[in-house]
């Protein structure tokens, strides 16, 4: 465990807590949040942590896996079932066809994986899926034009978590002899690149002190 990875996990946790805060603090409204992105994230955690009960790595690892699975399912449940939240969710705006993304990631996982076993194929699937899971959210933000600051911070923390993970991989590459995780590294780079344009507009809006506008 190194500080970059720990900081990455904490900012990832923060992004999820910001979302939960947004849903409850704004009187349980889910405006500007993409349910599809939240469902994809829940699937990422469920398919990645299949080894939760078979491979014990550390207490920290096990606890964080439970927290990520529970919190992501809580957000999906809340946006689907909670009487107030589901009313504020704008499904006409959240129309990204995420089925294609699911299919593409699964086919890619069948082709590109470390070992052809059930767990490894689903682990690779979860890595690819995480890279593109933010797309429905970014499309929704572009559609709705304005980004309220909690949602903006949510995406910002998610990007920070990925950025810190890339530094963690660079650090591990130089400090550990046999550290190679090509699938996670390449996929993580793609994911961080997806955030880059959002960061650019976020920085512009912060610098010019105007409301964050994403080009439609």
């Amino acid at each position: 465990m190194n500080i970059f990875r720990f900081a990455g996990d904490m900012t990832h946790l923060m992004s999820i807590l910001i979302l939960l805060l947004k849903i409850y603090a704004t009187k349980s409204c889910a405006v500007g949040i993409s349910l599809k992105t939240q469902e994809l994230y829940a699937l990422v955690f469920l398919t990645r942590y299949l080894d939760q009960f078979t491979d014990y790595v550390s207490l920290y690892n096990s606890v964080m896996k439970v927290v990520f699975i529970a919190s992501s399912l809580a957000i999906v449940w809340c946006m689907r079932r909670h009487p107030l939240v589901r009313k504020s969710y704008d499904k006409d705006l959240d129309t990204f066809r995420h089925q294609y993304v699911l299919l593409a990631c699964f086919v890619l996982a069948l082709l590109l994986h470390e070992i052809f076993t059930f767990q490894e194929v689903f682990w690779a699937f979860s890595i690819y899926l995480e890279a593109v899971a933010i797309l429905p959210q970014l499309v929704l933000l572009q559609r709705s034009g304005n980004v309220d600051n909690l949602t903006g911070q949510y995406v910002l923390f998610l990007g920070a978590y990925r950025g810190l993970y890339i530094i963690n991989w660079i650090y591990r590459y130089f400090t550990e002899d046999h550290f190679t995780r090509w699938i996670a590294c390449v996929s993580g780079l793609v994911q961080t690149a997806l955030y880059a344009d959002f960061f650019y507009y976020y920085y512009l809006s912060w610098k010019t002190n105007t409301k964050l506008k994403l080009p439609a």
Partner: peptide
């Protein structure tokens, strides 16, 4: 085993 070592990240 090998799997443990490689999959120590979240």
């Amino acid at each position: 085993g090998r799997r443990n070592v490689m999959k120590d990240e979240l």
